[in-house]
Amino acid sequence: MWCQRLAWLLRGRRGSAGRRWPWLPRGPGPVLAVPARCHPTAPASPCCAWQLHQDHLELRYGSTVMRLDFVWLRDHCRSASCYNAKTSQRSLDTASVDLAIQPQAVRVDETTLFLTWPDGHVTRYGLEWLARNSYEGQKQQVMHPRILWNAEIYQQAQVPSIDCRSFLETDEGLKEFLQNFLLYGIAFVENVPPTKEDTEILAKRISIIRETIYGRMWYFTSDFSRGDTAYTKLALDRHTDTTYFQEPCGIQVFHCLKHEGTGGRTLLVDGFHAAEQVLHQAPEHFELLAKVPLKHEYVENVGGCHNHMIGVGPVLNIYPWNNELYLIRYNNYDR
């Protein structure tokens, strides 16, 4: 029953080519119940028109045409009895929603859609909220705006590093760091004292620290104390780390505490920029990298460390509703 209800809630999603997801049931064809109406709006507001069908409401707001299933609308009611605004959590039991539910009355004003349900319950939806949260609205949105770069672009951008004191003690310093990180995928903090303890203080300023098979914070050098190429003197080519985790780490903090001799240069690559090039030059290859799962594996038997971890997933991970790339999982050493 739950699978059926979840499928019903998702049945309006379509793929990038407009194809309905093959594992979701098709609903009955639309039956016109009420003629389309264009309601007067304030001069600065976009025209809103709606059309009632057997199982959904078609709503045009500005340039967005939304197909809003009645079950989805009832499930997303934000009234006090259906949604706890203090915890931002749903109170309504989705399993209690009748799959054949239809509103008894529909009304739209300049900013709000009003639906009256068979039990008399009235739901109010802001039109802007619907435009942002509908399937059609989600397709038009970018979840994570980014600036794609190569060496030349990044050098010309002259992205500033953040001083450690400003980063730790001011909201402006933290904000600038986070903006750099979210836009470019990398960011730098200068003048951090060369200790693990100070590095941990800095890391906690960004987020919680995730426990791993290496611990929460750890040293590494070319002593082969762990069964990984990173603990050798061999150069490392381009890769992403922790591909063998079920969920690879999203943020990594590196701090060079001491350097003697030569070598040790860091190679940074914008994988999203590389993926964009593949998409334009060989879209069939992009599709292959986004669909075919690869197994990444970490096998360690060094000293007292015995670990065997496997992570499976495609190289390019994209949101299915707007084809936006959000994660790259690739490490040729661990395949």
Rank of each mutant, 00 (worst) to 15 (best):
60 R>T: 10
61 Y>H: 14
61 Y>A: 03
62 G>N: 04
62 G>H: 11
62 G>R: 07
63 S>H: 13
63 S>R: 12
63 S>M: 02
64 T>Y: 03
65 V>R: 11
65 V>A: 11
65 V>W: 05
66 M>C: 06
66 M>E: 06
68 L>W: 02
69 D>C: 06
69 D>W: 05
69 D>Q: 05
70 F>R: 01
70 F>I: 08
71 V>D: 02
71 V>K: 02
72 W>H: 04
73 L>Q: 04
73 L>Y: 06
74 R>I: 12
74 R>A: 12
74 R>F: 07
74 R>C: 10
75 D>N: 13
75 D>L: 00
77 C>W: 06
78 R>S: 12
78 R>D: 03
79 S>A: 14
79 S>F: 04
79 S>L: 11
80 A>V: 15
81 S>M: 05
81 S>H: 11
82 C>P: 12
84 N>I: 07
84 N>Y: 09
84 N>W: 10
84 N>V: 09
85 A>P: 00
85 A>C: 08
85 A>N: 07
86 K>M: 12
86 K>N: 13
87 T>V: 04
89 Q>D: 04
89 Q>V: 05
90 R>E: 06
91 S>V: 07
91 S>A: 12
91 S>I: 09
92 L>D: 08
93 D>S: 09
94 T>W: 14
95 A>Y: 10
96 S>V: 00
97 V>C: 04
98 D>W: 10
99 L>N: 08
99 L>W: 02
99 L>G: 15
101 I>R: 01
101 I>C: 11
103 P>Y: 08
103 P>G: 04
103 P>H: 05
103 P>S: 02
104 Q>F: 00
104 Q>E: 09
104 Q>P: 00
105 A>I: 00
106 V>H: 01
106 V>C: 02
108 V>C: 07
108 V>K: 00
108 V>H: 06
109 D>R: 03
111 T>K: 05
